[in-house]
Design a protein around this nucleic acid. Structure first.
Lengths: 260, 260
DNA sequence: CTAAATTTCTCATAAATTGAGAATTTTGAA
DNA sequence: TTCAAAATTCTCAATTTATGAGAAATTTAG
C-alpha cells in the first residue's frame, strides 16, 4: 500500500453505519501493524481529516466540512442548479423531491436536493448519497449520455442477471434518449416514481441529471405534461447557467494569468 | 514535503475564490516540479479527491461531498443539534440566524445553520465557514470553555494590538463565563448582534456553541430574556442529546466488539 | 493537419516508510 | 492518590517508495 491509497483506505472505513474506529480496529481491518497506523492516523489528525473522539476512537475530521463548503460555493453544477430546485418543487403539481445528481466514479451521486416541506416519506435522495448506477430515473438520465467504451465498462460492473435483462435495459435507454427524458417507478424507493432530464456540459466535464420524485399515490396522468415541461425548462436553464459560470471561470483564469 | 502533507498542501490551494488549478499552476505555487505534481494529482483524481474540470484545470472532487454526508449523519454535535436550529429560530421573538459552531484547529467553524426564511441580510454564518477565533458571541462561547495552556496558545495566535486589549478580552471572557452566555455587537458582521451559549461534552471531545444572530434594527431590550431562555433551554437539550448519542455509540461499539 | 500544450513514462538517486519492540504517557478503577 | 492496563509514541535498520530531469506519447485547438 503506497501513496494516497494508504490514507484513502483508512478514510474508506468510516461510514454512516460505523463512524468511529480505534487504531487497533483499523490495524486489524487493514492487516497493518498498529505502530504504522498510529503514525498515519496522527498525520491525518494534524491535517484535520480525522479527529479523536471519545476514548481511543477516531472519527472523520472537519476538513471535509470545509472542503464540502468550497465545492458548494464553487462547483458549477451545484452553483447553477441548486437555486432552481426549490422553484421546481414549487411549480410541480404535487409534492416532490427534486434532485441534482452526477456521475461519481462508477456510481451516481446526489449533489443537491430540495424536498417540498409537505413531502412525507423519507427518500434515498440526499446530498452526498450514492445511488445505484442503472436504477431510477435520476441515474438513467445520466447513463443515457454515456456512450462507447465507457458505457460498456459501466454495464460490465452492473452484472445483469441475463443478456435479456441487459438488452431490455439498453433498449429502454435508447428510447429514453430519443424522448429526451426518463421515467421510472419504484426502482429506488417503493411507492415513489421519478422523472428526469439530462444535464451536461462537455467543456466542464459535467454528466448529470435533474429529477423530480413523487409519491405514486399522489400522481395522476394529467400531471405528466406539466412535470415534463418543468423539468425540461429548468434543465435548459441550469445548462445555460453552467455555461455562464464556465465563461466567468474562463475570464477569471485569463485575468489571473495576465497578472502573472 | 512528505506524508499526508504532500496531498494536503495541494488541497489547501483550492478555495472559494480560486476553485480550479492547472498542474502547472500548482507546480509553480508549491515550487515543485510538474512531473511530480502530475503524479500526485493523478493519484488524487483516482481517489476522487480531485477531478479534472475544463481544459487542463482540476477542481475538488466528489469524495468531499460523500464524507461530508457521513459526518452529517454521524457527528454527535451535528446529529444532536441540527434538528433544534429550526425550532430555536421559530421560538425566537425576531427573525434570526441560528448556528452550531465548534473549534476547528485554531479557528471556529460553523457546522450547522438555520436562517429564518424572512431574514434578509447575508451573514458570515454558514456551514463549513471558518469564523474568527475571538470575535462574535458564537466564537466566544467556545473560547470561554478553554483553559490553561491551550487558551494561552490560542491567545498568542490572535496577536492582540496591546496588552490592554488582551486584558479587556480576558476580563470580558471571565464575566461571560460567570453569566453563562455571550453577547456581542457587530464583531463579525456590521448591523448584527449575537447571543451564544456553550455546548460541551468532555468524553466526546466536543467544544462548541449554540448561537442566535439578529439584526440590530429588529432588536428590543424586552426580547433579551426570551432569547436567553431559548438558548439556555435548547443548549441543555442539545447536550442531553449528545449524551444519548454517546451512550448509543458506546453500546454499538460494545456489541461489535463482543461479536469479534 | 500541425504545432503547442498537456500528460505520461523512465530510471538512477535520494528520501521516506515500515514495523518490531521498547519506552512513555494516559486512562480509569479502586 | 495509586497502580495496572491500555493507548500512544519512539527508535532505527531494512525496505520500499517518491523524486525529478528529460524523453516520449497523447491530446487539444487553431
Amino acid at each position: 500500500m503506497s501513496g494516497f491509497l494508504r490514507y484513502k483506505k483508512i478514510l474508506d472505513l468510516f461510514s454512516e453505519e460505523r463512524s468511529s474506529w480505534t487504531v487497533l480496529e483499523i490495524s486489524k481491518s487493514l492487516k497493518t501493524p498498529s505502530s504504522t497506523i498510529y503514525r498515519i492516523v496522527r498525520e491525518m489528525v494534524t491535517a484535520e481529516f480525522l479527529e479523536s473522539a471519545s476514548g481511543s476512537y477516531f472519527r472523520l475530521g472537519p476538513a471535509f466540512i470545509k472542503f464540502n463548503r468550497i465545492i458548494n460555493f464553487s462547483d458549477p453544477l451545484v452553483r447553477a442548479g441548486q437555486p432552481f430546485l426549490k422553484k421546481l418543487a414549487n411549480e410541480n403539481p404535487i409534492t416532490s423531491v427534486n434532485v441534482l445528481a452526477r456521475l461519481y466514479g462508477n456510481n451516481v451521486m446526489c449533489v443537491a436536493d430540495y424536498k417540498s416541506p409537505s413531502f412525507k416519506k423519507n427518500t434515498s435522495y440526499q446530498r452526498g448519497k450514492l445511488m445505484p448506477l442503472m436504477n431510477g430515473a435520476t441515474s438513467r438520465a445520466i447513463i443515457m449520455q454515456i456512450t462507447g467504451k465507457r458505457l460498456e465498462n459501466l454495464i460490465k460492473l452492473e452484472n445483469f442477471k441475463s443478456d435479456e435483462d441487459k438488452n431490455i435495459f439498453l433498449k429502454d435507454l435508447k428510447s429514453d434518449k430519443k424522448k429526451g427524458y426518463c421515467f421510472t417507478e419504484g426502482q429506488v424507493d417503493k411507492g415513489l416514481i421519478g422523472f428526469a432530464v439530462s444535464i451536461s456540459n462537455k467543456k466542464l466535464g459535467i454528466e448529470a441529471s435533474l429529477s423530480s420524485i413523487f409519491n405514486l399515490d399522489d400522481f395522476l396522468l394529467e400531471h405528466e405534461p406539466i412535470i415534463y415541461a418543468n423539468l425540461t425548462t429548468y434543465g435548459l436553464l441550469v445548462e445555460k447557467y453552467i455555461n455562464e459560470i464556465f465563461d466567468d471561470i474562463q475570464k477569471y483564469h485569463h485575468e489571473t494569468n495576465s497578472i502573472r
